[in-house]
Amino acid sequence: MSLKAQIFVECHHVGFRREDKTVFSGLNMAIKKGQITAILGPSGTGKTTLLKLFCGQLIAATGEVLIDGQDIAELNRVDLFKLRQRMSLLFQTGALFTDMNVFENVAFALREHTRLPEHMIRDLVLLRLDSVGLRGAADLMPSQLSGGMARRVALARSLALDPELILYDEPFTGQDPISMGVLVNLIRQVHEDLNLTSVLVTHDVKEALSIADQVFILAQGRVIGSGTPEQIKQSDDPLVKQFLYGHVDGPVPFHYPAPNLTEQVLHHD
């Protein structure tokens, strides 16, 4: 297999601005097929934006985003929707459809994209729900689920159509230790079982380093460090170190840019 074929998602010099703020400038990244890739970075560095660029919900201002060799900006709506059926994004909040119960949520993509008979859909949905441990919750409405359960249902839903690429947006945020452990295990398990390419966007360093094959650290609109978890841990870059070990002050300053304190306090006019 050539090197090119092993790469699923590729960013070349991607630049993106939101209003007056530069989110990315000259971002380069290559995500390999069949691996778990973690994209780490402080809050507000545009990690979610990056996932939306991968899905073609946002289009990069400069540079290109290639998914499986196709430039996502050049696809028309029909081809884009076709490509999206091969990938899946797990939202931070789960984004379950609030007017349907758990079963219908998981069945949604199957009903929309296939013409399977009802009994088959039922079996597939129950199998998916079983794999995330929530077969018993099939009849509950999303409002009756805890945050961790909602994310597991969302995971089952995004796996319904057997995607090749799955993107997780902050899967661990706001979880208690138990459901955190459950999610880490699930992500690893479905990755192996379904032969997926998984991309995690997160700021939970410990969990990410424990399951990722490859890590990218984003800050200031570009990749400041990349490699295997081992390589990242041994990085000398002060910014990478600050982020990994949570130092209060460093290249990312504790203080928001402001004029000198003495001057501001003493010389007010």
Partner: peptide, 22 residues
Amino acid sequence: GLMKTTEQLSAMEIMGVDPFKR
């Protein structure tokens, strides 16, 4: 508005279902 706020519309789009039609 609520579907948009809770990202249900985005989720639908990403699942390859066009919210305009659906």
